[in-house]
Structure formats: C-alpha cells, structure tokens
Simulated scan of single mutants.
Amino acid sequence: MNAHSPSAAAAAGSTVHLLGTLVTFRALAADTEGTFSLVEAVTAPGQGTPPHRQRDDAEAFYVLEGSFEFMLDGSTVTSGPGAFHYVPRGMPHGFRNTGSTPAKMLIINLPGGLHENFFREAGDAVADATQFPPMAPPDIPRLVAAAGRYGIEMLPPA
C-alpha cells in the first residue's frame, strides 16, 4: 500500500464559504482513493446548515472548538469540544453554531467526492480562511440545484 500526500489543493487549504461556514479542504477523494473527504469547518455564531439528508454512505462530525447544536433524525443535542456524531446514509441532520464566537469541527464524508464537489459548487471561494465574508442571505435556487446534483436533499425546517 502506498502512502499518499494531500493534493496541492488540499495541502494549500483551499476554502469556500457556504451558509456562514468556512469550509477548508484537508483531504480530497483524489487523496484517499475515493474513500473519504475531510474538511475543517469554522461556523459563524448563529449560522449552520438547514436539515438535509444525503445518499452518500456516511458523514461524521468531530467538534474541536465552540458549541454546535446538532439536529440528528429529529432529536436535538448541543455538543462541545470532543463530541463526535456519526450520520448514516439517509438520516436527516443539520447543525448550527449556538455560541457567540466561531465554532470549529472536522467533517468526514464517505465516500469522498460528493460533498467536496457540492461545497465547491454551492459555496464561494475565499482567499482568507480566517475571515468570514459579509453575511448575506443564501442563493436558495443555487444551493438546492447543487445539492440535488450531489445526492443531498434539503428538508423543511422542523
């Protein structure tokens, strides 16, 4: 088995802004033989993802800093540093930063590719992964169209 170094894009830490979250790519499908993608997500206070579900195999969240409220299959739990959540295929879920400062987590998607492509298509590239761009309402048609192309179904709020 060969060890692989992160691709130039992942090693450079390319970042997109999506729904109040700065998503920095740490390992891409191309780096993991398609097995998984890994991103670092920094979410502004009060921001996060609406409820959704996806067709990829699984998603996992590991909280590094701050406080997130996770909606997992209809239940809500608040999680701080060290919390881990596994989301199997098809489970409705979403998250929101409930704190007053940015919150950070790692997100793993299995297999690699679908989510990283969604993030790139639905998000906006940013040059500085440490600064949030001005917050603006999301482009819902763009978000829903991109989500549909990558097997993500946006759900109505609970």
Rank of each mutant, 00 (worst) to 15 (best):
T98K: 12
A147E: 10
M1W: 01
R142V: 12
G48L: 11
L64A: 09
Q47V: 11
E33I: 03
G113Q: 14
A103D: 06
E69T: 00
V23P: 00
Q54N: 14
T21P: 00
A129P: 15
I108T: 15
M1C: 13
F84K: 08
T101G: 00
T32A: 02
P156Q: 05
A145C: 07
A136C: 12
Y86P: 06
A10S: 10
N109R: 02
T49D: 09
S100G: 08
H52R: 09
S14H: 13
Q47F: 06
F36Y: 15
S67P: 08
F119T: 05
P102Y: 09
S67Q: 13
A44C: 13
G151Y: 07
R96A: 07
M135G: 12
P157N: 05
P102H: 02
H52Y: 10
V77R: 14
Q47T: 06
H115G: 04
Y150Q: 04
A103V: 04
P81L: 07
A158G: 15
R149V: 08
A29N: 04
V63T: 07
A30F: 07
A30E: 08
F118G: 08
D31K: 03
R96M: 06
E116G: 01
M1D: 06
F132C: 02
E121Q: 12
Y86T: 12
H93L: 11
R26N: 00
A12R: 09
P6N: 09
P92H: 01
F119I: 09
